[in-house]
Amino acid sequence: MSNTVTRPDWGKLFSSILAEPGRLGEYYSLFHSYSLGNQALAMFQMTLRGIPIGPISSFNGWKKLGRRVRKGEKAIALWMPVVKKEVVQKDDGTEEERTRRFFIMKNHWFALAQTEPIDPENPGTVPTPETPEWDRATALANLGITEVPFEHTDGNCQGFARPDKLEIAINPLAAMPWKTTFHEIAHCLLHSKRAEAAFVDGGVIDASIEEAEAEAVAFLCCATLGLPGLEEARGYVQSWLGSSAKAEEFAKKSASRVFAAADKILKAGAASKEEAGDE
């Protein structure tokens, strides 16, 4: 880690993740949650029409997010539930109102690549704050991690990682792309099949602990570099752990893993490739 950065007390910071109030970001619910079937249908249409796979929303949905559908773009069709009430006559001659639910296909949705900012000066994305002590591209290169396109239809998903391939993807509309980047890098460092072997007691890590570990790493990186997102990171960790028993397990087994991953990420972005290779 560069000598220009004074590292805070990580022990106290780690404890604060569980002890201090957090807030789950509203950006996890900005988009409608589409069924797996509709997501697959949308991806098929995007691929067929040569549209880059990405988040989908309705015309008005994009408008609320500060984006508009470009002229000439054709909508994507999804299955839409329809509820219809009808009156039927029973055998005894009386009438009864029944509700029937069925699906119809409607062309109401557009992919991110089919839209543009309503206000070019405010494109609807959050720029990464200046961090002269840490360079993102240098960190990815030193860690051997590749960033790939965000090919996911769920706009609520901020990013994803493929740990065994050392690949990460960040949603172009991510609310805090710097925090998400730390989170996904942490997955690559901690949660590949190779990394799992180092877990305390040799146990298998469940998804809740994996997510808590990755976000705790992001929390420490943000705190060390003076970046926003600490309250949201605490909220994310607390929501995944859920119970005091899970939090206790996390505190005992994950602290050293989180510290090691955060240290590696920060050093990778602060050092040259030659320096990183000598560590």
Rank of each mutant, 00 (worst) to 15 (best):
R257D: 03
P149M: 11
P8N: 13
S243A: 07
R257W: 02
D119A: 07
F102Q: 10
L241T: 02
E96T: 08
I76M: 08
S57A: 14
R101W: 09
F182P: 00
R67F: 00
K252V: 13
A137P: 05
T131F: 11
T128V: 15
L48S: 11
Q39F: 08
F199K: 05
E133P: 08
A40E: 15
T153H: 04
R68E: 14
I145G: 00
T94S: 15
A214G: 12
L227P: 04
N171T: 05
Q238H: 13
L112W: 03
Y236W: 11
R100V: 15
T6V: 14
F102M: 07
S33V: 14
V217Q: 01
A195E: 07
A276I: 08
V83T: 13
P177G: 08
I168H: 00
A268C: 05
L65G: 06
Y27G: 05
E184F: 04
E184L: 03
A174C: 08
S2F: 06
E20Q: 13
K85P: 06
K246C: 06
I104S: 08
C221G: 06
A270K: 00
M105R: 14
F14I: 10
K267L: 13
S33C: 08
E97P: 05
D201Y: 09
E116R: 01
V88I: 15
K74R: 10
C188E: 01
P127R: 09
H183P: 04
A141C: 11
V83I: 13
C188I: 02
C221H: 02
S256F: 07
E231P: 03
W109R: 03
P172H: 07
R67Q: 05
Q114M: 01
E97K: 10
L173C: 07
T138R: 14
T94M: 07
S192V: 06
K179M: 12
R67T: 00
N156M: 04
E184Y: 06
D263M: 05
K84G: 09
I185M: 09
T131N: 08
A139T: 06
E20N: 14
L220V: 03
K90C: 14
A268H: 00
V217T: 04
A214P: 01
A218H: 01
F182L: 06
S243M: 06
K74W: 05
P55F: 03
M43D: 14
G124D: 02
P55D: 03
A137Q: 15
G66V: 03
E116D: 08
T180P: 02
N107L: 10
S57D: 13
I51V: 12
S256I: 11
S208A: 14
L24A: 06
K85S: 13
D119S: 10
G61Y: 02
A141T: 07
